[in-house]
C-alpha cells in the first residue's frame, strides 16, 4: 500500500479578474509515493508544486480525482477523521516553519503526540531524542522567537517525525535559509527520513536538493514527468 496515492488529480481555480473563467493548475495527474523512498517534485514558481503538496496532505481538495492516504480516500472523511489521519500518517515541513510561538522547542515537537492523546511524560523521551539527534539538546526550552532560522527548521523536522508518520510532506524546507544552513538541514532531513524508514515528498525549486532524493519529477504543463527513478 502506498502511503499517499494521487489518482487523476485535476485542480482548477477561479480566475480572480476574469469573471467565471477558471485556471487549470493540475490536469489528470497521477503520483504514488513509495514506502521508504524520497520523492522530489521540481518546477518553476507558479507551476502548482505547493498546490499539489496541499492536495496530497489533505489540506486542499482536488477539483477532480482522489487522494488516497494509507488506503483511505480523504474525500470520504469528516473533519475529525481527516485530522486524525493527518496527525498519525503525515508530517509537514514548510518554508515558514509554522511553529507555535508560545510553545518551547520541546513542546512544539511534542505537540502532534499530545494532540493524539499521548501523555506528556510518555512522549517526552521521543521528542528529546529527536531534538538531540538534530543538535538542539541545549535549545529545548527556547521558544521559536529565541531560535535561529536553521534551528527553527530543525525543530519543524523533529515535529514532523514525532508521531512516526508514514510520509513527510516538505514544501521548500530550506527556502528561507542561507546556503550553509540549507545544506545542513537538507542532509539532516534526508538522513533522518532514511534512518526512520519514512517516505518523503519534497517540493522544491532547488535541483541539487531534489536530486539527492530517490525519485524526481518535474511539474510542467500541469502534469508530472519522471526525471529520476530509484534504482
Amino acid at each position: 500500500m502506498h502511503p499517499i496515492e494521487l489518482v487523476s488529480i485535476t485542480k482548477r481555480f477561479k480566475a480572480a479578474e476574469k469573471g467565471n473563467d477558471e485556471i487549470t493548475i493540475l490536469q489528470d495527474l497521477n503520483l504514488s509515493i513509495v514506502q521508504g523512498q524520497s520523492t522530489a517534485i521540481i518546477g518553476k514558481s507558479g507551476s502548482g508544486k505547493s498546490t499539489l503538496l496541499h492536495i496530497a496532505g489533505g489540506l486542499d481538495s482536488p477539483t477532480e480525482g482522489k487522494v488516497i492516504c494509507s488506503g483511505t480516500d480523504f474525500a470520504t472523511l469528516d473533519d475529525k477523521r481527516r485530522s486524525v489521519l493527518r496527525n498519525r500518517h503525515i508530517g509537514f515541513i514548510f518554508q515558514a516553519n509554522l511553529l507555535l510561538e508560545d510553545f518551547s522547542a520541546l513542546e512544539n515537537v511534542m505537540a502532534p503526540a499530545l494532540i493524539s492523546g499521548v501523555k506528556a511524560r510518555e512522549c517526552k523521551d521521543r521528542a528529546v531524542e529527536l531534538l538531540e539527534r538534530l543538535g538542539l539538546a541545549d535549545r529545548m526550552d527556547h521558544v521559536p522567537g529565541k531560535l535561529s532560522g536553521g534551528e527553527k527548521q530543525r525543530v519543524a523536522i523533529c515535529r514532523a517525525l514525532m508521531n512516526r508518520p508514514e510520509v513527510i510532506l516538505a514544501d521548500e524546507p530550506t527556502g528561507a535559509l542561507d546556503e550553509e544552513n540549507a545544506s545542513e538541514v537538507e542532509n539532516l532531513l534526508l538522513d533522518l527520513v532514511r534512518e526512520e524508514g519514512r517516505s518523503l515528498l519534497l517540493v522544491t525549486h532547488n535541483q541539487d536538493f531534489a536530486f539527492k532524493c530517490d525519485n524526481v519529477y518535474l511539474l510542467k504543463n500541469r502534469n508530472l514527468t519522471l526525471e529520476k527513478e530509484a534504482t
Partner: peptide, 15 residues
C-alpha cells in the same frame, strides 16, 4: 495562525 498550525498538525476543530 496558531489555530491553523494546530489544525495542520492534526488537531480537529473540536479539539
Amino acid at each position: 495562525q496558531e489555530i491553523a498550525i494546530t489544525k495542520l498538525i492534526g488537531a480537529s476543530d473540536t479539539l
